[in-house]
C-alpha cells in the first residue's frame, strides 16, 4: 500500500507538471504567436480607447442604438460574471419579463410588426453579441426615427452587417449588435 502511494504521489507530480503547467504554457505560447488578437479577447481599440470585444455583447437601451438580447447578468452584459436567467418555462417571472419586453417594443415606432423571439428572451451567457437579422430589421424604424435618418440608410447598414451561416449551413445567420452600432455612430 505504501509503495502504491509513493508511486501515485510521483505520478501525480509528473502528470501535474505535464498537463497542468507545460500543456497550458505551450498552448499559450503558440496561441499568442499564431492568433494574437483572438487569444487576447478579440478586443476593439479605437485610438486610445478600448471599446470592447467583438465577441462580447454590450448593453444598449438607448433608442438611438440597436438593442441586443435580454441579459440576466447584474448589471446587464456583465462580462466578469456571466449568467443566464435560469427561469423555468412555467415560471410566472419569465412570463412577466416576456410581457414587459413585448409591451415596450410594441409602444415604439415599427412595433406593430411580428416580434422575433430572440428579441424578447434572455441569452444563455447574458453576453450574446448577436441578434437575428429579423430582430435587427424589426428595430430599423425606431432607430431611424430616433436618429432622424432615412430608414433606407439604416436598412442598408443592417444588410451590410448580416453574417450568414458558417459553411452555408452551420449555426444561425446573425447581426453583431456592437459592430452595427459602431457603424451607426460613424
Amino acid at each position: 500500500m505504501f509503495k502504491q502511494l509513493n508511486v501515485a504521489a510521483r505520478m501525480l507530480l509528473v502528470l501535474s507538471l505535464l498537463t497542468g503547467v507545460l500543456y497550458p504554457l505551450l498552448v499559450t505560447v503558440l496561441a499568442q504567436l499564431c492568433f494574437h488578437s483572438q487569444a487576447n479577447g478579440s478586443l476593439i481599440v479605437e485610438g486610445e480607447v478600448l471599446r470592447g470585444s467583438q465577441l462580447v455583447g454590450q448593453f444598449f437601451d438607448d433608442s438611438k442604438f440597436f438593442w441586443g438580447r435580454l441579459s440576466a447578468t447584474t448589471p446587464p452584459y456583465n462580462a466578469s460574471a456571466s449568467s443566464g436567467s435560469n427561469l423555468g418555462p412555467t415560471n410566472p417571472e419569465l412570463s412577466r419579463i416576456l410581457k414587459e419586453r413585448i409591451d415596450r417594443l410594441r409602444a415604439l415606432p415599427g412595433g406593430d410588426a411580428p416580434i422575433p423571439v430572440d428579441l424578447v428572451t434572455a441569452s444563455a451567457s447574458g453576453l450574446d453579441p448577436d441578434i437575428s437579422p429579423a430582430a435587427a430589421r424589426f428595430q430599423i424604424a425606431r432607430v431611424a426615427a430616433a436618429r432622424g435618418l432615412p430608414p433606407e440608410r439604416v436598412h442598408a447598414l443592417v444588410e451590410q452587417h448580416v453574417e450568414g451561416r458558417c459553411l452555408g449551413f452551420l449555426g444561425e445567420p446573425r447581426v453583431n449588435v456592437l459592430e452595427l452600432n459602431r457603424a451607426l455612430v460613424r
Partner: peptide
C-alpha cells in the same frame, strides 16, 4: 432570418 423556438437561455449564433 431567425431561429425561432424557445430562445430563452440560448445563444443566437447557436
Amino acid at each position: 432570418d431567425q431561429p425561432g423556438g424557445n430562445m430563452e437561455g440560448k445563444e443566437l449564433r447557436l
